[in-house]
């Protein structure tokens, strides 16, 4: 049996498909319930009840929403570019799924444990902007177009600081492999020595996923709904799910880069009894809660403030911190001589 899966071609293909399903099915269920969790958590914060009709505590609301979106009519504007209009939501959604191929859920448990895992994540997350940009252009609508342009400028700006924060982490790890990055945090999670970078990364992740308070691309008050104003039914649903899947992905990145991935907080008995994947899930859920908490708390940024924060605050800060990290590691002789992994 093991020989069939590991050494024959068909076996390997089946094994890869099964591995992918083992990640995607929990992820999609998580996305479905994140939409519900967001409404419930925000309702609790605003002293409301939230969805409570479908099923006990509204647990079937996610499926009710899904059925509603699937059975609605897909409206394509007459001036729209049909192919690109339908392609954009699929791109957004599938990119958010693709990135999970390299996320390790336990020591060595990743679909693809590649040497350049961090770069792969950076590449995939920087492609997310195309879904938004293409949707804005293909809709042939001014609101959608302005929303798309805003989103593109915003995501490109915040990618720069995300990249520099990741470089600081990589300096301390000495490898681009996500597995090595987590293992390097055995003694102390990077969120403690690199606390400012942790905060910058988290805020940049909010901006990268177009979440409040940086949800200008969809700013209801000025752009109706921004880049997806013309979308309906399943196409809209894919955008919606793509946004939540991206939140999962960004929370996963925060957990792996700064919160020690699958590692328990302290490597002693009661903590080590809980298996690694559960720790990772707990950390991702914590980050997602903060995402929702932020949305329920802060008002939306103005566009010039957003750009100023990205370019004039985060970029210089993360650059200085990168140089500081390199200098500190060099001075104390802690610089890892990596690359052999």
């Amino acid at each position: 049996m093991a020989h069939f899966f590991l050494h024959t071609m068909i076996g390997q293909v089946i094994l890869t498909v099964l591995e992918a399903l083992a990640v995607l099915v929990p992820l999609l269920l998580g996305v479905a319930y994140l939409t519900l969790a967001e409404r419930k958590v925000m309702a609790a914060m605003q002293l409301r009840k939230g969805p409570n009709v479908n099923g006990p505590f509204g647990v079937l609301q996610a499926f009710a929403d899904a059925i509603k979106m699937i059975t609605k009519e897909t409206v394509i504007p007459s001036g729209a570019n049909r192919f690109l209009f339908l392609f954009a939501p699929f791109l957004t959604f599938s990119l958010a799924m693709t990135a999970w191929a390299v996320i390790p859920t336990n020591d060595g448990w990743a679909i693809a444990n590649i040497n350049v895992g961090v770069l792969y994540l950076l590449a995939i997350s920087s492609l997310g902007v195309y879904g938004v940009l293409i949707a804005g252009w293909a809709s042939n609508s001014k609101y959608a177009f302005l929303g798309g342009l805003r989103a593109a400028a915003q995501m490109v700006s915040y990618e720069v600081s995300i990249g520099l924060v990741i470089v600081s982490v990589l300096l301390a790890v000495g490898s681009l492999n996500l597995n090595d990055i987590v293992l390097a945090q055995r003694h102390v999670w990077f969120c403690l020595p690199m606390f400012p970078m942790f905060i910058i990364f988290f805020i940049s992740a909010l901006a990268e996923t177009n979440r409040a308070p940086f949800d200008l691309p969809e700013g209801e008050s000025e752009l109706v709904a921004g880049f997806f104003v013309e979308y309906s039914a399943l196409a809209f649903g894919l955008f919606f799910l793509g946004e939540y899947a991206n939140m999962f992905l960004m929370s996963g990145m925060v957990s792996i880069l700064f919160l020690g991935g699958w590692l328990p907080p302290i490597g002693i008995a009661p903590f080590t009894w809980i298996p690694g994947p559960l720790w990772l899930i707990a950390k991702i859920l914590f980050c997602l809660f903060v995402f929702i908490w932020v949305r329920a708390t802060f008002p939306r940024y103005r566009y010039d403030q957003l750009m100023r924060l990205g370019w004039k605050v985060f970029l210089p800060l993360s650059l200085v911190w990168m140089v500081l990290t390199a200098g500190f590691l060099l001075a104390t002789g802690l610089l890892p001589q990596g690359g052999a992994s």
Binding site: V116, L119, L122, A123, S126
Partner: peptide
Amino acid sequence: MILVIVYVG
């Protein structure tokens, strides 16, 4: 990866 990040991204 660099090609994708720099040129595409």
